[in-house]
């Protein structure tokens, strides 16, 4: 008799996420790729939910499956999502080998002995008492304060960089060569 346990649900969700990821790289049409990517992100959000990280799950859905994917779809719509014609080539097959290698690695990671337990101030009962959003906030602003501030520098640089590249008048390459 097959019983649906917690482990089985986690495993099935994980496999679905990996399959969705395969869909992203194997589909010829960009729109389908984007849809598979959404599927992958929803699977990840469900996994977070299963690990009692409700806040991260919500963020995953809102930010990635919501905002980022909408941008993706907009850009695909802007550029015209034509099907790409696939030609068999050495590079393509070597890329496949590589992906399969990484996948095997993932299976190996699943087969290894139990990983090291993570210790910290946030025991399950503490998280239950204050809620996972607050737990994330407390961790971010205390233990991970410096990385948090560095991430803000990173975002600032990305903004400066893209404005810097976009503000110059730009001639398309075709017209420049004339």
């Amino acid at each position: 008799m097959f019983e649906i346990t917690y482990e089985v649900v986690v495993f099935v969700l994980g496999i679905t996420a990996v399959l969705a990821a395969f869909g992203v790289i194997l589909c010829a049409s960009p729109i389908y790729c984007a849809l598979y990517l959404i599927g992958n992100m929803i699977c990840l959000a469900l996994l977070f939910l299963l690990f009692n990280a409700e806040f991260i799950a919500a963020v995953q859905i809102i930010v990635y499956a919501g905002a980022v994917m909408i941008l993706f779809l907009f850009i695909i719509a802007l550029l015209g999502g034509k099907k790409e014609i696939s030609e068999p080539s050495v590079q393509r097959s070597s890329a496949f080998t590589f992906v399969i290698l990484l996948f095997c690695e993932l299976l190996l990671a699943a087969a290894v002995k139990p990983t090291h337990p993570i210790t910290g101030d946030m025991a399950p009962d503490v998280v239950n008492a204050i809620g996972s959003a607050k737990a994330v906030g407390i961790e971010l602003f205390s233990r991970h304060l410096v990385p948090f501030e560095l991430a803000s520098i990173l975002l600032l640089i990305a903004t400066i960089g893209i404005i810097c590249l976009a503000k110059f008048s730009y001639l398309p390459a075709r017209r420049r060569l004339k």
Binding site: L154, I157, A158, G161, I162, C164, L165, Y170, L171, R176
Partner: peptide, 12 residues
């Protein structure tokens, strides 16, 4: 990220 932008700073 700084280097990506610096490498491409000559837009034309």
């Amino acid at each position: 990220i700084c280097l990506y932008v610096l490498a491409g700073i000559r837009r034309n």
